[in-house]
């Protein structure tokens, strides 16, 4: 289709004869149309709808005889999917393992989700773990972590991390983090802080021991967000006491550590996060400084500070992007 383009490039001496041959060879074959993403979306939707439907079905029919059949059905799905995955999986290594085929990932997802529904149901109806709710969430979490590592599945690792947070009594998924969280309680701030530090240590360990290195991103992604948010929340919670200084220092120390790590790994995403979070931290200090007095001039100065600092950061980001690209 673009034959003249390649002919021109060849005439200009930019493409060798071999390459031109390869290209004309390829252009002769009819182009393949890939439905890869459509299939993946369908698989994802199918698993999502099926598990949602089953989860609802069990609870809707809880008082009738039918629910035991539904339960049996869920157990069968779970067992069948796990059996399939155990049969097909490639041998375990500490490096990244490719999944044997496209549907493997989704069948594993189906297995894990139906397992979580199953355990949840057992607890709800038969009180298997009694009133020990910690245990009821601990076991699915451990299973999810095991499955994530054993079959090398990033999505399930993320589910496991979310379950870890649930086990600790909080939540990490963005929607709930923003909507439901009440950062005005000390317990919650400390819980998030501990969770964040555990996740960041997890990310560090993943790289240090060279064990499933590609899992580092997930740990670090949740860890960095949760720790920064809890440190800033702590600062504002203790705004008027001296401990506030400790929290803000913690934020800057974390920023320094993550920045060093991001620079070593050439990760622009984490550099950006560090810059934005420390900008919030620094700006809250500046605002505090300016609002000591109460006059209009200070407000105008504050506005100018924001304009100048944000422009400065824009240039910083542009420069850094060039460095990272190089």
């Amino acid at each position: 289709m673009n034959e003249p383009l390649y002919k021109t490039l060849h005439a200009e001496g930019l493409i060798s004869d071999d390459s031109l041959n390869r290209i004309t060879e390829r252009e002769k074959q009819p182009p393949l149309f890939s439905v890869h993403w459509e299939i993946k979306t369908l698989l994802y939707l199918g698993v999502l709808l099926l598990t949602t439907g089953l989860g609802l079905l069990v609870y809707e029919n809880i008082d009738t005889i039918g629910h035991q059949f539904v339960l049996l059905f869920i157990a069968l799905i779970c067992a069948g999917s796990f059996a399939y995955c155990f049969k097909l999986k490639l041998p375990f290594t500490t490096e990244k393992v490719k999944s044997p085929n496209v549907s493997f990932d989704y069948i594993l997802l189906l297995a894990c989700t139906s397992f979580v529904i199953f355990v949840g149901y057992l607890q709800f109806e038969y009180k298997v773990f009694g009133t020990n709710y910690g245990l009821a969430t601990l076991i699915p979490m451990l299973v999810l972590f095991f499955v994530a590592y054993y079959f090398d599945h990033l999505g399930i690792l993320n589910m496991a991390i979310a379950n870890l947070a649930i086990w600790m009594g909080v939540s990490v998924t963005p929607k709930r983090l923003l909507l439901n969280s009440d950062f005005d309680s000390e317990t919650i701030i400390y819980t998030y802080l501990v969770l964040g530090i555990i996740l960041i240590l997890g990310a560090y360990a993943t790289q240090h021991f060279n064990f499933k290195k590609h899992f580092k991103f997930s740990y670090q992604h949740y860890g960095v967000h949760v720790t920064f948010i809890s440190l800033l929340a702590g600062y504002f919670h203790y705004y008027n006491s001296a401990i506030a200084a400790l929290w803000i220092l913690g934020a800057f120390a974390l920023a320094f550590l993550i920045y060093r790590d991001a620079r070593n790994n050439k990760s622009y995403y984490f550099t950006l996060l560090v810059i934005l979070y420390s900008y919030v931290a620094a700006s809250s200090l500046i605002v505090r400084l300016f609002t000591f007095g109460d006059n209009e001039g200070a407000v105008a100065l504050l506005f100018m500070y924001f304009i100048a600092s944000a422009i400065g950061l824009i240039f910083l980001l542009i420069n850094m992007n060039k460095k990272f690209k190089a």
């Binding site: 199918g46 709808l49 099926l50 089953l54 609802l56 496209v102 549907s103």
Partner: peptide, 24 residues
């Protein structure tokens, strides 16, 4: 009811995806 519908649609979609993959 919604729960049965979701379950059936989920199974059908998975079936379709599986069929297309086998076919292609």
């Amino acid at each position: 009811p919604i729960d049965t519908t979701l379950t059936i649609i989920g199974v059908v979609i998975l079936g379709i995806a599986y069929g297309v993959m086998k076919y292609l």
